[in-house]
Design a protein around this nucleic acid. Structure first.
Lengths: 346, 346
DNA sequence: CATGATTAGGTGCACGCGCACGCATTCACA
DNA sequence: TGTGAATGCGTGCGCGTGCACCTAATCATG
């Protein structure tokens, strides 16, 4: 079965190809009556542009902007970034130019500054994550004024307007971590390791995951103690001493969970203080975390396909925007994956 | 940066576009010297055809054939099939016609018959899985004679010629299943449930997985007994009675593994004879298996992205064949995934 | 050496679309 | 009523390929 072309639509509507083109792209210069005739013909013939021909003919470069946290090599957002790069390659034929912008997770003003730059760029679409409620909300409203669609990656604010989202259900991921930490066991006390942050400024993005974790433990082991332990990522000596202090204060604790993505920070301590009885669970398959797992220091990692997620989001978002179609699924909750020493090699 | 076109290649090689075209598609009618000049120019300019323009210009329909086991709705190969369908949609602009052929897993002659039909069709490429060593080998040789490339899905024969493979490492998956069955526990005896087959005719495709499972148990629990229990998929009453018989003969066994994909066959028995102390592990996220997991009858499922795997294989294979490029990675070992009650909802 | 077949290579067109340009007709306003 | 601007619509070209068709040179053969 042959698909309809602009020419078919034009013939059916009794106009020329140029007019059909103007209607499709809302370029104006068409009378209301004609617009409706053309729309009708498009609907009747179920016309949609041949993507190959579009890409070939259009010399226009579709500019998209992405605003995510700045990061070091190997960190969580670095892997997200890779996924975007990879997705970009998949849609080369769409002539997409993806501009990356990075903000400082501890500085809401840096987010605002980058957001302003993006607004000036007037891209066809924007991807960002949910961090500073206030700043993201402002940004979202301004984008809406300019009719620029927006997508959330990794986490989102449900009350804002966005086209598409891709990420895991963080509360559920916390529950899964707790399940794996305690499966087939009796548990009396659990240590939950957090990273100190300049937390006055913004909501901790890991909070929902932590809540899932805590709720699961409380539900299934109501008599168990949950200790929270803060470590400072900027100093490895301070990490070791924090861990030492905790371990000697609570020698009975065998179950450790790191609810953020940086389990690798305590890998050295786990190695230097190895205890075969200890159970350790972490999140996200960063290279450092995987290394710790291969060394037998970690029992389970809860993760997901991080680059796959950003890849998926980008390619779908771009397609939606370029061909002005609504997303098939707005909220894409990615599948959580469990890694153990037996399946942690890519 | 502009990508090179055929025209650029032609200019560089000092020939015309038509000659470049003949070289790329091996249409002959070009002297050896010129062929090399053109190849050289292609390499230097890192030329690859613009997929949009190719798709637009080519009216040719690329016919591919796929030969996999016949199946019922919801079974393993049904999910594989879905992945192919989905992949086909992603590459609509490539004008691919994928013809599906199905054989009877218990009848090597049915494989031969379908293979013969495919040979007559002369497709651009063939996808199949490794089942009947003899028949697949014959098929592979005949395809090679016709210069038709071949891809393996799910499992493979390493000594045959194929372009690309996609599947899990089955031995490793068996090990992972054993690990999850026994993690954090002392194990004295294990039941391994198999499906009776017309096993004289062909090698059991699940053998490597079973070996991985058995080896892991033997390595980590040398004193543990491993019992093998056969069930007959065609009769649910016989399944129940087999299970009953085994359970009363070996009441001490708490660890059950189903090493094929049909854990769902014993779901009813597990429910009717529920034992909170029992640990159950299975393979593959078929709908029936997931249902059993949601009902709390199964502790872990080892699986992978089944449709994703076939989708990936198809899209890459087609691209390789159409643009006559070698695959980036020939052996694609897909990541194994662990499902528990906490992450078994899509 | 004549003749036809074969080999090596070039050229033109169509694919479906985006977009720049061009040409009428109508409208606003002096 | 004349004139320039705005409106409504049609046409032609080019994007990079694939492929059918054409030409010139070479070769085999009697």
């Amino acid at each position: 079965m042959k698909t309809a072309t602009v020419y078919d639509v034009a013939k059916r509507a009794g106009v020329s190809r140029g007019t059909v083109d103007r209607v499709i792209f809302n370029r104006g210069r068409v009378s209301q009556k004609t617009v409706e005739k053309v729309r009708e013909a498009i609907r009747e013939l179920n016309y949609s542009a041949n993507p190959s021909a579009s890409a070939l003919a259009s010399k226009q470069i579709h500019c998209f902007a992405c605003l995510i946290p700045q990061h070091q090599k190997g960190e969580y957002w670095d892997v997200v970034d890779e996924g975007f790069k990879h997705g970009l390659e998949e849609i080369t034929f769409c002539n997409v130019d993806l501009r990356m912008y990075y903000y400082d997770q501890n500085d809401i003003e840096s987010y605002r500054k980058m957001a302003a730059e993006i607004l000036e760029l007037r891209p066809r679409g924007v991807i960002t994550n949910a961090v500073f409620k206030e700043a993201v909300t402002e940004f979202s409203y301004k984008l809406k004024d300019l009719a620029i669609p927006m997508a959330f990656i990794d986490n989102k604010y449900d009350d804002l307007d966005f086209d598409i989202y891709c990420g895991v259900d963080p509360y559920n991921s916390g529950q899964l971590g707790a399940y794996l930490l305690t499966v087939h066991q009796k548990v009396e006390s659990v240590a939950m390791i957090r990273v100190v942050r300049d937390s006055g400024k913004h909501a901790d993005p890991n909070a929902p995951r932590r809540h899932g974790f805590v709720d699961y433990i409380a539900d299934h082991f109501p008599d168990s103690a949950i200790y929270t332990l803060f470590i400072d990522p900027s100093s490895s000596e301070s990490i070791a001493s924090s861990m030492d202090r905790f371990a000697s204060a609570h020698p009975e604790v065998r179950h450790y969970a790191v609810t953020n993505s940086r389990l690798f920070l305590i890998a050295n301590w786990l190695k230097d203080n190895y205890d075969p009885e200890r159970v350790v669970v972490g999140f996200d398959d960063l290279e450092g975390n995987l290394k710790a797992m291969r060394e037998g220091l970690v029992d389970f990692l809860v993760t997901k396909d991080i680059p796959g997620q950003s890849n998926y989001l980008l390619t779908n978002f771009v397609r939606n925007v370029i061909y002005s179609q609504p997303p098939k699924v707005k909220n894409n909750y990615v599948h959580m994956d469990v890694l153990s020493k037996m399946n942690c090699n890519k």
